[in-house]
């Protein structure tokens, strides 16, 4: 039972402690999001350390996506504060967050269907000057090509997103996110629908990015494929923090097991 107590201690410790701006590259304090009468995220506080791979876990409908939509500026939170790199960024619009170095992938995949893989990635690399000579000569394509090769789409540069297999779409999401040159990358459900070897190769890519100095937050509703990858996990349920700790601590936590009815932690 000792593992359980440490996990609970870790969990309670964070709930009680106030999060301050310098607790990590990303610090979230007392985040709350209501939709009408529904409380999707309820007083959630956590911090992400630089260069860690954090698993952000919870059953379906736990509020994971809403949390990240609040952090990335898609929705303004009802209450609470978000700090990124020590600066307050609560309610900053999504494109500003991207410019500050926070990128995300979309679980539902949101590529531009009307252009090639290469041009999808190239869009992420553009800066937002209104009048520019850039692009008239196609000089972005070299860097965009390098990113495509990195995420494993080197041989599919000129295909459209519709021609990609499921795993290719995920790789494209990663490529588009990497194109913005992020310091923190939020990856939403990367392993859903991937085969074993695909999970492994995506994991290798994420580990490689971390080794180069990137911080990663991986959102998922189960832990398949996640345990080997992450350094630490945060588990939420019904919009609030349930547990926090190392992968081992999380899997042995009875409350987490309860939340998943024993079935989610393969």
């Amino acid at each position: 039972m000792s593992a359980d107590t440490t996990a609970e201690e870790a969990a309670t410790a964070t709930v009680d402690d106030e999060i301050s701006p310098d607790d990590g590259i990303l610090a979230v304090d007392g985040l709350r999001k209501e939709f009408g009468g529904l409380v999707a995220v309820d007083d959630l506080s956590f911090a992400v350390q630089e260069q860690e791979i954090l698993g952000f876990i919870g059953p379906n409908g736990a509020g994971k996506s809403t949390t990240f939509n609040c952090v990335t500026g898609t929705y303004p939170p009802t209450a609470g504060t978000v700090w990124y790199k020590g600066e307050e960024v609560t309610g900053t619009p999504p494109h500003e967050m991207v410019k500050r170095g926070m990128a995300r992938t979309f679980q539902s995949f949101a590529p531009l269907e009307d252009r090639s893989v290469l041009k999808n990635v190239a869009l992420s690399m553009m800066n937002d000057n209104l009048v520019t000579m850039d692009g008239l000569l196609g000089e972005f394509h070299e860097e965009a090509r390098a990113i495509c090769e990195r995420v494993g789409l080197g041989d599919r540069l000129h295909q459209t997103p519709a021609e990609l297999p499921h795993a290719g779409m995920l790789r494209l999401e990663l490529g588009r996110a990497l194109g913005t040159d992020p310091d923190l990358l939020l990856v939403d459900e990367p392993f859903a629908g991937l085969s074993g070897p695909e999970v492994e190769s995506v994991s290798d890519l994420l580990l490689e990015l971390r080794d180069e100095g990137m911080t990663l937050v991986v959102v998922d509703h189960n832990m398949r494929g996640l345990l080997q990858l992450i350094d630490r996990a945060i588990v939420i349920n019904f919009g609030s923090l349930l547990a926090e700790g190392s992968p081992d601590e999380i899997t042995n936590n009875p409350e987490v097991q309860e939340a998943y009815l024993g079935g989610g932690l393969e």
Partner: peptide
Amino acid sequence: EDEDAVSAAGL
């Protein structure tokens, strides 16, 4: 094509 993708590209 997709406004969210534009925001996600930092634009």
